[in-house]
Design a protein around this nucleic acid. Sequence first.
DNA 1: CTGAAAGCGCTTACAG
DNA 2: CTGAAAGCGCTTACAG
Lengths: 356, 356
Amino acid sequence: MIKGPTIKDLSRLAGVSISTVSRVINNHPDLSGKTREKVMRAIEALNYRPNRSARQLVRNTSETICFVLSNREVINAFHARILVGVEKYVRSLSQNLIFIRFDYSAETPPEELVLPPVIWERGAVDGLVIAGTNHPNFIQAVRNLHIPFVVLGNNITGKIIIEDLYTVWFDSEGGMRQATEYLIGLKHEHICCFADATFPWYRRCYEGYETAMKEHGLRPRGLDIKLQEPRCADYGYACVMHILRADEPVTAIVAGDDEIALGALAAFNEKGIRVPKDISIVGSDDIDELKYVNPGITTIRVDREKLGEELSKLLFERLQNPKLPPMKRVLSTEFVIRQSCAPPGSQRHAEQPLAS
Amino acid sequence: MIKGPTIKDLSRLAGVSISTVSRVINNHPDLSGKTREKVMRAIEALNYRPNRSARQLVRNTSETICFVLSNREVINAFHARILVGVEKYVRSLSQNLIFIRFDYSAETPPEELVLPPVIWERGAVDGLVIAGTNHPNFIQAVRNLHIPFVVLGNNITGKIIIEDLYTVWFDSEGGMRQATEYLIGLKHEHICCFADATFPWYRRCYEGYETAMKEHGLRPRGLDIKLQEPRCADYGYACVMHILRADEPVTAIVAGDDEIALGALAAFNEKGIRVPKDISIVGSDDIDELKYVNPGITTIRVDREKLGEELSKLLFERLQNPKLPPMKRVLSTEFVIRQSCAPPGSQRHAEQPLAS
DNA sequence: CTGAAAGCGCTTACAG
DNA sequence: CTGAAAGCGCTTACAG
């Protein structure tokens, strides 16, 4: 990198000590107007720009935080917005943001995990916002570094004591509960939940659904179908095929996410079952793709930028106050009503709605 | 930030000088195995992690580059992939990546532009990858900083001498030309281009289209419709309404981007005009939303991750070789054939296909 | 092969 | 209100 003028050059030109120059640069209050004036002129004349590395070293802070996107090949729309939320908040505090993707296996012991240098080295970043999909080993490895960090709670898997962490969540359980209650309000009784409860995030969805069902004296009904990781739409499709084969009637579906809902919609379309006339669907997440789908899918939305903002806010609170106890903050979701739900059995009241 | 052991502590524990410790850390070749051994043990014992700020200061390099996303409220899917491409390449070189959004007006003179501190200060980043939508004033302001930078060429507007810059482009002109030739190969003669040539990126699209048309002795046909910035789909819709009102027949459309194509598709659907039976459409960019659309839109795709890789690669070449002359690198596009194109007038051969 | 010393560009008590 | 000096944690000629 090209070297520029330093405070030494300024001090020489302005005829003051480097301490004074430093004070001017840092807006120190006890300064005569004249000296300040002289130094300012020198700054102008030499086109001085302070050196961040030097300041970092002596102040022992990088004023930089790191956004870690774990185990994601790409930045999806969801995380793109979280990242923007983090960036905005970080910059509003005149701090910097390092972005890094980090892939790791859940099986590697924490001590053997090779962390990215920017995290592992001292002085590069003051704290971490950890998003993407995370496992206890990485959390533990970061903890061993004694660097403050916050984690997006929803995508944590495995055995870990959440109460020891600083986490921010969106309330998928509450959202699913609200969705289920909405369907119940529409007089649905045979509501099925499409979500593979093996995954913690889907389990929370299921629990929200279950709570609502039980509260209204209805029998919750999950499925035993296992999710084949990458293509969630296929899962929705498979679930539909399953309930069509089963004996019990189903008049409404709450899906663990919109991709599942979309897969279900495709399956219904294929089978000539009309949404919402014959069956109602609620998705979750409000992904952008829903805009292009007919009928519009009723879904649960979370303000992703806000999520990023809350993550970074919590991190900075922790940074400013080392005594801040671990905590969990939850963002509520918004229920978005579109056209995919209707009262059950409107046009075939006598018979069982589906799979009779 | 919590302080940890320094090379001083290591030198004391290992019983060697700090110079020697530094040599071990930096894998200096001239070192006796024994000394290295001693120092390594000390490193283990104290759990030493080097301090990046100190190293940055003395080496006069941050080993960090900055990705600047200009004038974008969000990270769209296109830029999300570019960013990932940059991140991967940067990390493969063990360097860091700072992410920043920067909004500015095209009108502000370069000297008055308030640059983000991370760019303006010395020592924070070694170079910049500039993406998003950019104007000459910012480019000039960055140039005044004497910090190496590369720019995504396609989204630069205004009067600027591209030949003085390090730019990476995707070949939208070539892509549109190929798309047009494809339609001509299908025997289309009345092909219309939906792109507001006031914008440089759409102008390049138009030029590719124009070239192909002229080469085949066909009359290129643009529209005078102006784009209302944010909602491109509306533009496609408006264009369709326009050609339906006009006298001349149109059997195929090449659109400046997929949103325009989607808007056009919606308009055709509304009017009962079938794609591709009655009219053919080609889009551009291959946005994710196309997956959910019927019929599948034939389009032009660019490898966005590759774009990010090329951007950072060029930057590092420049960083390593200050004598590297400015240059323009162009990535070719890929033509993706789906179901939105067919030979013209298959079922109404005698009459004029549309707006007869 | 190793150490003493200077230096990177700042900040910050400590005097005055 | 201002300056001389020490120091942040490293790297790197320069000797030996």
